[in-house]
């Protein structure tokens, strides 16, 4: 009777989660038929929140990079979408091109930003975002804070446009989520976790810290850029302040804090919760913001690990399996 170790990566919980996610994807994809143009617009908003939360969570929760300037990628992607479509490119191709530009911008930014530590990095990102905001304001097409519109999207009939935007949002969100999932399950995932837990320790055992951080940073830049371009496509209006505004950072923080830092499930739950709160309470104006703040304070004090930090450990196995589960089994 010898005990043997059995290593698994999934289980009942992850299969149920996969089924739930698949169901959510099908419902979202079918939104245009069931809930019309308005429903599609809301679905895009939900997907944008999911992208922002998951990407900010990857950055802060996995790579330990707390950025308050992710609006850099959000705003620049929206701006390049406007610029490219004004130059005659199809607006949907302009969105895809802007996502690629976001990735390139993320890489270039990482070359000098990643050598900054904690607070310096956070403030540095904010400075870059403000700088980009000012540069965008100087473009005569944007007319300062007056802004302009993604007018070429009106070339599509409204039902077509809202459906395509939704499906594009769904595809981009799934692609980014899949990339993050694959990354976390790969050997780099182990390196990411090591860097998060102890950067010096990780370096001492041979992890290339900068390279590891860069991979996450560029992925987060890409996903946030996708969110910015999609937000523009669903709202048409580009006013620099509405895209580079610091309120987006607050939303990202809220979603990740409430959902649970360091877990994909947490970010997903945080985004859905934020979406639900916004849907039902946004009309209360200033009190809605006060309420958001109150909820954030409550979670910081009572559930510092967020909702998933409470739910996750009570489930058998992982919902989104990124780690390894080791069981003793008797043979």
């Amino acid at each position: 009777m010898s005990a043997q170790l059995v290593v698994t990566r999934g289980g009942t919980t992850s299969r149920i989660t996969l089924a739930l996610l698949a169901f959510a994807v099908i419902v979202l994809a079918a939104t245009p038929w069931f809930f019309g143009v308005g429903g599609s617009g809301r679905a895009v908003a939900l997907l944008v929140y999911v992208l922002l939360a998951v990407m900010w969570n990857a950055l802060a929760g996995f790579a330990g990079l707390v950025s308050i300037g992710q609006t850099l990628f959000f705003g620049v992607a929206a701006y390049t979408t406007i610029r490219l479509s004004n130059a005659g490119l199809d607006p949907y191709l302009a969105i895809l091109a802007s996502v690629a530009i976001g990735a390139v911008l993320g890489y270039v930014t990482s070359l000098f930003m990643l050598s900054l530590k904690d607070g310096e990095f956070a403030i540095g990102m904010w400075v870059l975002s403000s700088l980009a905001h000012l540069c965008v304001n100087l473009d005569p097409l944007i007319q300062g804070e007056t802004g302009t519109s993604l007018i070429s999207l009106n070339g599509y009939a409204i039902e077509t446009r809202s459906s395509i935007t939704l499906w594009l949002a769904l595809v981009l969100t799934l692609a980014v989520l899949a990339a993050l999932f694959a990354l976390l399950r790969s050997p780099t995932g182990a390196a990411i976790t090591a860097v998060r837990d102890d950067e010096l320790g990780a370096r001492s055992i041979g992890v290339n810290v900068i390279r590891t951080k860069r991979i996450v940073f560029v992925l987060a830049a890409t996903g946030t850029a996708a969110a910015g371009a999609l937000w523009l496509a669903s709202n048409l209006n580009f006013q620099p302040r509405a895209f580079f505004g610091v309120h987006w950072t607050a939303y990202m923080l809220f979603m990740v804090l409430v959902g649970g830092l360091g877990r994909i499930e947490g970010a997903l739950i945080g985004a859905v919760l934020f979406f639900v709160i916004e849907t039902f309470f946004a009309s209360y104006g200033a009190w809605y913001l006060v309420g958001l703040g109150g909820v954030a304070v409550f979670f910081a004090l009572v559930l510092p690990n967020g909702l998933w930090g409470w739910i996750g450990p009570r489930l058998p196995g992982e919902a989104i399996p990124t780690g390894y589960i080791i069981n003793k089994s008797k043979t």
């Binding site: 143009v37 804070e145 007056t146 802004g147 009106n154 409204i158 709202n235 048409l236 209006n237």
Partner: peptide
Amino acid sequence: TPETINPVSDACEAAG
């Protein structure tokens, strides 16, 4: 003012 009207007009255009 453009600060009020343009974003509202765009939101209406987007939603039909």
